[in-house]
Amino acid sequence: MFTGIIETLGVVVGVERDQENLHLRIQSKITKELKVDQSVAHNGVCLTVVAIVEDIYTVTAIKETIDKTNISHLQVNDIVNLERGMKLGDRLDGHLVQGHVDQTGVCTAIKDQNGSTVFTFSYTSNQGNITIEKGSITINGVSLTVFNSKDTEFSVAIIPYTLENTMFKNMQVDSVVNLEFDVIGKYVARLTQK
């Protein structure tokens, strides 16, 4: 489990395809604190550390992950949001995040609001995912609050600190993002369908 509060940024230093798998080498200041078999969220995608060499570690994404996320869009020198799994007993500053991306979305607008930045995203509704006004959403691993919730669109407001310390600072209109919808909302929606 994760909280959606980004711990640090990493830089992609290697991308290698191996059959249907994708191996990513990430350079980060937390690498020396990691261990093989540890889970780390990369733009909200939970991946397992499989190798560590100095300040670079390797993770592997399988076809299922590649098909449902934007992980295959990553290239050398791209910046990624990183968060290690939360420790039981830690504060939960964001919301409960599984690191299991539900689908991707697309940034459709970025607007400066004199102190914050509003990002608007669209997504397809064919998977039954929904947002609710003032509910939680995870975008590329960042826990955020939804407003302007519509059937296939929503907005979030980013404070300057979050903008500067996450990959949001590099986001552009048409960027493809990972979306993890609120886990509690998903269960409620599933129960009401039955």
Rank of each mutant, 00 (worst) to 15 (best):
V15D: 01
I71A: 06
Q75R: 12
M86T: 15
T117P: 01
K194H: 15
A109F: 08
K68M: 12
V50S: 06
A51S: 09
D55H: 04
C107W: 01
I56T: 09
K150I: 08
A41N: 04
K169Y: 04
F147E: 09
V45Y: 01
E20R: 08
T108N: 07
Q38T: 08
D18E: 13
G115L: 11
D151L: 05
T138K: 07
I159N: 05
D112R: 05
G105D: 04
N140F: 11
N148H: 11
T131N: 12
I62F: 07
D78M: 11
I130G: 00
I137Q: 11
D151H: 01
M1K: 06
N170S: 10
Q103I: 09
T3N: 02
D78I: 14
G135Q: 13
H23V: 12
T138F: 15
R91C: 13
I52M: 02
K63A: 14
G128W: 10
Q193D: 09
N129Y: 14
K186I: 11
C46R: 05
K150S: 10
G10L: 05
K87I: 15
F2A: 01
S143D: 11
L191M: 14
T124W: 02
T108Q: 06
Q127N: 11
R84H: 11
G115Q: 07
A41P: 02
G85A: 15
K35V: 08
A51W: 01
L47V: 06
D93Y: 14
V188D: 04
V177I: 15
H23R: 09
L74D: 04
S125R: 03
Q19R: 04
Q113H: 07
L179N: 05
S72K: 14
S136K: 09
G115A: 09
R17C: 02
T60V: 15
T145I: 11
